[in-house]
């Protein structure tokens, strides 16, 4: 564990908590893509199946449980409890167009052709593009609430910090995982446009509004 990895994990945790609190306190999931949340739940479940057969540390186990539970709670809020506030019409991204290629790629490019390893690889590929429905929703409505922007910033920063973690591990431990690194770069790049808007607008107190 190094500082980049820890900051990345905390940023990830913060993002998930911010989203849950936003939905809970405003009693609304307006502006949030349920499609992206479904993809994240698939990502966590596929990746953390190793909870069943591998023990790494209490930290690792607890974080995995928190990510899976928080993700399922978010979906419950969006599709059951606060269903009336969910913006169905704008959240029209077809997630099968992300799931199917991620699965095919995981079957073709992986470290080992075993069920758990393929699911891990699938989760890495899917996570890299899982935010697309959310970014699509923001681009369709042309704006995002500040709190949604903070959520997106924390979520995007997490993989960016992981990139620094991988650079550190390469030099300090001679350890690297090309699949995770390439997918992590793709994931972070997808947020760049948003990061730019966040820094130039939201941090200056303005609403995140896309040019018409």
């Amino acid at each position: 564990m190094n500082i980049f990895r820890l900051l990345g994990d905390l940023s990830h945790l913060l993002a998930i908590i911010v989203l849950l609190l936003k939905i809970w306190t405003t009693r609304s999931c307006a502006g949030i893509s349920g499609k992206s949340q479904i993809l994240f739940a698939i990502v966590y479940i596929a990746r953390y199946l190793d909870l069943l057969n591998t023990y790494i540390s209490a930290y690792n186990t607890i974080m995995k449980f928190v990510f899976i539970s928080a993700s399922l709670a978010t979906i419950f809020f969006m599709y059951v409890k606060f269903k009336a506030t969910y913006d169905h019409n704008h959240d029209s991204f077809r997630i099968e167009f992300l799931i199917a290629p991620a699965l095919v790629l995981a079957l073709l490019i992986n470290h080992e052709f075993s069920p758990l390893e393929i699911l891990w690889t699938f989760s890495i590929y899917l996570e890299s593009v899982a935010i697309l429905p959310q970014l699509f929703l923001v681009s369709k409505t042309g704006e995002a609430e500040s709190i949604t922007s903070h959520y997106l910033f924390a979520l995007g920063s997490y993989r960016g910090l992981y990139l620094l973690n991988w650079v550190y591990r390469y030099y300090a431990e001679d350890h690297y995982d090309l699949i995770a690194i390439v997918a992590g770069v793709v994931q972070t790049v997808l947020y760049c446009d948003f990061f730019y808007l966040y820094i130039t607008k939201v941090l200056k107190g303005k609403k995140l509004q896309l040019p018409a």
């Binding site: 990830h12 990746r47 790494i56 690792n60 990510f67 080992e112 992981y162 973690n165």
Partner: peptide, 10 residues
């Protein structure tokens, strides 16, 4: 590279 069986990152 590390052990394929174990992914210690989240």
């Amino acid at each position: 590279a590390g052990d394929v069986e174990e992914h210690d990152e989240l």
